[in-house]
């Protein structure tokens, strides 16, 4: 199976969605890169080490996820667009949106010493919605890029992976700024964000929203049901993200991330299983329809 239909470059260039995706990634890069460059200038060793570690992490996961694909290979171009949307589009727009959302929140409600709740709500709502928009944009790009729930889940994973790698690289440099050992600070951030919470972090949340987008565009169900799943999956990802960042169950970072994260990972695995079964049945039906009999 391929998830792209024949699309000429001319058709792609005529689509407003193509230009919108380019604009969002470009503006995101314009907003995010200066942050990273200034952090890099402050601490070049930490910056280079962070880029090496998180770049390697992203490439390794990219390779593993690409090899785990079932029902055919997905387009690497679309995968790269998903990754870039997360790494540059979401991180960049979030530099404007997160402070704004946080200011509105703290001006409207009283958080006082519980300001970590404001940070958790801000990160959950802003980042998940922007990642969700990325998978939705890919679905509307010319070329039939998402035609199953599984496709949406796959591209959602890559939007989240791009965001995770870029944001974590910035955090690594920031944490190294005050540490006695730059190398240890970068490695500690990597262990916490990449290893301990890596399985149930940004890629997991956006894979859930991606599955919702995949269902929305590929299911023949009623519009109300598809919108319900689309927004329900987004709500689920936002709630999971808020819970993960919320100042509850704090104390032991490892216990906290496992207790908060494992249910989200289990949820994603259930969605993955259902999506695979649905896709297998869909392929079976397509084969029957094409051959006039049951597939062997």
């Amino acid at each position: 199976m391929t998830t792209t239909s024949a699309t000429t470059p001319r058709e792609a260039l005529r689509s407003p969605m193509t230009w919108l995706v380019v604009a969002v990634i470009g503006v995101g890069a314009y907003l995010f890169v200066p942050f990273f460059v200034s952090a890099l200038q402050l601490n070049p060793v930490a910056g280079i080490l962070s880029v090496a570690i998180w770049g390697g992490y992203a490439l390794l996961l990219w390779w593993i996820l690409a090899r785990m694909q079932r029902f055919g290979r997905r387009s690497w171009v679309t995968t790269a667009i998903a990754f870039a949307w997360g790494a540059l589009g979401v991180t960049g727009l979030a530099t404007k949106a997160s402070p704004g959302f946080s200011d509105v929140l703290t001006s409207t409600f009283t958080f006082g010493q519980d300001s970590e709740w404001a940070s958790a709500l801000t990160a959950g709502v802003v980042e998940e919605t922007l990642k969700w928009a990325g998978v939705l944009a890919i679905a509307f790009l010319p070329g039939l890029r998402i035609r199953s729930t599984l496709d949406g889940l796959y591209y959602g994973l890559f939007v989240g992976l791009g965001f995770e790698a870029a944001e974590s690289a910035l955090y690594s440099v920031s944490s190294a700024a005050y540490a006695d050992s730059v190398v240890w600070a970068v490695i500690a951030t990597f262990v916490l964000r990449g290893v301990i919470s890596g399985l149930w972090s940004h890629p997991t949340y956006s894979a859930i929203t991606g599955a919702g987008v995949g269902y929305f565009v590929s299911s023949p169900a009623s519009l109300a049901r598809r919108i319900g799943i689309l927004l329900g999956a987004l709500g689920l990802a936002i709630a999971s993200h808020i819970l993960f960042d919320a100042p509850v169950l704090e104390g032991n970072a490892i216990v906290a991330t496992v207790v908060k994260g494992v249910p989200v990972l289990v949820l994603l695995l259930i969605i993955l299983r259902v999506s695979r079964k649905t896709r297998a049945a869909q392929i079976e039906a397509e084969t029957e329809s094409a051959t006039g009999g049951p597939s062997v």
Binding site: M17, L136, F140
Partner: peptide
């Protein structure tokens, strides 16, 4: 052209 989709995004 997916103009409606582009508008949403």
């Amino acid at each position: 052209g997916s103009a409606a989709g582009a508008l949403v995004i």
